[in-house]
Design a protein around this nucleic acid. Structure first.
Length: 484
RNA sequence: GGCGCCGUGGCGGAGUGGUUACGCGGAGGUCUGCAAAACCUUUUACGCCGGUUCAAUUCCGGCCGGUGCCUCCA
């Protein structure tokens, strides 16, 4: 399986350190507010990576952190802690806020059919590990203390600019951030922040340097080390984290252990809404509930994610949602074929078990090519069309089709196999309709009777197609949209 | 100012040195008792100017336009 590695800026074959195990760390949410649709896009993309690895026989061990303290309103270590700010906004404690949005996030993972991460560690439950790591960095001479906290001296770390290919000297010229005069370098960042004098924070802990709370970046280094060891296989995150957060993670972890932190870095690009990126400052953050309010199921959102590549910016608007909805409906119709033995036509059928198995390998190959999900989607559309047009050859092909759909579900997480079979009663109705239809064509029955049964089926959201040379096929309508 | 990315048909969105992406929408058709559904055909593109090449949307250079990061942010 190949993946674009930001470290080398090239597509590389994934070679886990201890295959078949593959360790993955992904940056999770800061739980101070509802995640917006862009956050969920990224989490779905993590899920697709994990699913692809599994399809290749690898056993991912996936850690996604939950940041419930220390993420300041500004990465420059100025400003307030987001959790404390959220708490004031809602008149609760920071702990209440973290609990509420943390639970909401975990629930969201389930609603979106995102594979359960093996670990969802919270920053507040790993304060000791973070303090330990800072102590190690202190012993090795990478830290210094100023008025408001313990800082990491980025100039001491060889290769600090490597991942993001930064040019710090030139960046300073255009920096708009007020420079903390006590910091040695503008890129230095806080490992531990002291509680403001005379102020009691909801969240604060004792440390060797004084009462306070951890900086945002240290949690990822501490928790990935605890759960996955010094070196992990794949680290994924949003592209916005490249220059600061991920760069700092590397600096912390590698300075502490002397080993490489992660072998592969995967960065997901953003989704734009009406041409703008989603951000708090623009106030255009759409939530899952907003999508559902428009009548779309969350599978529609997943199709939208799949339709664009993770390294390109995708767009969210009414048209793209509608397009994704239509595509999901098509895929669901495709999946419904695996309940229909009538799709086997021994006389005219051309699609063999070999063809179906080839299709499966073809899909996996596309996924293995740097998660080429748009290609996977187009291939599925083609297989759907081909099978409908050419029919299946025999029962073996029918069985293989069922397995193909299950494979696609495991790979993409679209819950296509949830397309339930018909009831016995519905099946009998279809059979009767087909029989009457054939009779009516010979003048042996009335079309009015045929139409009556069709109407009945329609009330079950079932549409029947009759064929001269084949048994009938059915499909369900409106399964991707609530209002249907 | 520094570091990047992108510019594809009505829309979304892939990809490629010479061959249909795919989906949505529009148009026409086949099948059909009608209507759906299904299927077929069609709509036909690669910002501009040069260069390389037998051949460029696809490689190189320049220009124009858009956009991301260097603040919050997936």
């Amino acid at each position: 399986m190949k993946l674009y590695n930001t470290l080398t800026r090239s597509v590389e074959e994934i070679k886990p350190l201890a295959a078949p195990k593959v360790t993955i760390y992904t940056c999770g949410p800061t739980v101070y507010d509802y995640p917006h649709i862009g956050n969920w896009f990224t989490f779905i993309r993590y899920d697709l990576l994990v699913r692809a690895l599994k399809a290749n026989g690898l056993g991912p061990v996936w850690v996604m952190n939950i940041t419930d303290v220390g993420h300041l309103v500004s990465d420059a270590d100025d400003g307030e802690d987001k959790l404390e700010k959220g708490a004031r906004r809602e008149g609760k404690t920071a702990w209440d806020v973290a609990k509420f949005y943390g639970d909401y996030f975990v629930e969201g993972l389930k609603r979106l059919n995102i594979s359960a991460p093996n670990f969802l560690p919270k920053a507040t439950e790993h304060i000791a590990e973070q303090i330990e790591l800072i102590k190690t960095l202190e012993e090795k001479g990478f830290t210094y203390v100023i008025d408001d906290g313990v800082y990491y001296d980025t100039s001491k770390f060889e290769g600090y600019e490597a991942l993001a290919r930064l040019d710090l000297d030139d960046q300073q010229a255009g920096a708009r951030v007020a420079f903390n005069a006590q910091k040695h370098n503008s890129s230095d960042f806080a490992l531990w922040k002291f509680s403001p004098k005379g102020q009691k924070r909801d969240m604060e802990w004792d440390s060797p340097w004084g009462k306070g709370f951890p900086g945002w970046h240290i949690e990822c280094s501490a928790m990935s080390k605890k759960y996955l060891g010094d070196t992990l296989d794949i680290h994924a995150g949003g592209i916005d984290h490249l220059p600061v957060h991920h760069t700092n993670e590397i600096a912390q972890s590698e300075a502490a252990t002397g080993k490489r932190f992660a072998n592969y870095w995967m960065h997901t690009n953003h989704v734009l809404i009406d041409g703008d990126k989603i951000s708090k400052s623009l106030g255009n953050g759409i939530t899952l509930e907003d999508i559902e309010k428009q009548g779309y199921s969350l599978e529609v959102l997943r199709v939208l994610v799949l339709q664009s590549h993770y390294r390109t910016q995708s767009k969210l608007n009414d048209a793209s949602l509608l397009s994704a909805y239509a595509r999901l409906t098509d895929l669901q119709k495709f999946a419904q074929l695996c309940f229909q033995p009538n799709v086997v036509n021994e006389k005219y059928g051309r699609f063999s078990v070999e063809d179906v198995e080839y299709a499966r390998q073809d899909l996996l190959n596309a996924m293995n090519d740097d998660l080429a999900t748009p290609k996977v989607m187009s291939m599925l559309s083609e297989y759907d069309r081909n099978i409908r047009r050419d029919w299946l050859k025999d029962q073996a092909a029918f069985k293989a089709l069922r397995e193909l759909i299950e494979f696609v579900d495991d790979l993409l997480g679209l819950s296509l196999t949830n397309q339930s079979d018909l009831t016995k009663e519905q099946r009998e109705l279809i059979q009767k309709e087909d029989m009457l239809w054939r009779k009516a064509k010979n003048g042996e029955a009335s079309f009015a009777d045929v139409d009556e049964i069709k109407k009945k089926l329609m009330s079950h959201h079932i549409v029947v197609s009759n064929f001269n040379d084949s048994k009938p096929l059915w499909l369900r309508t409106g399964t991707g949209r609530k209002e249907d």
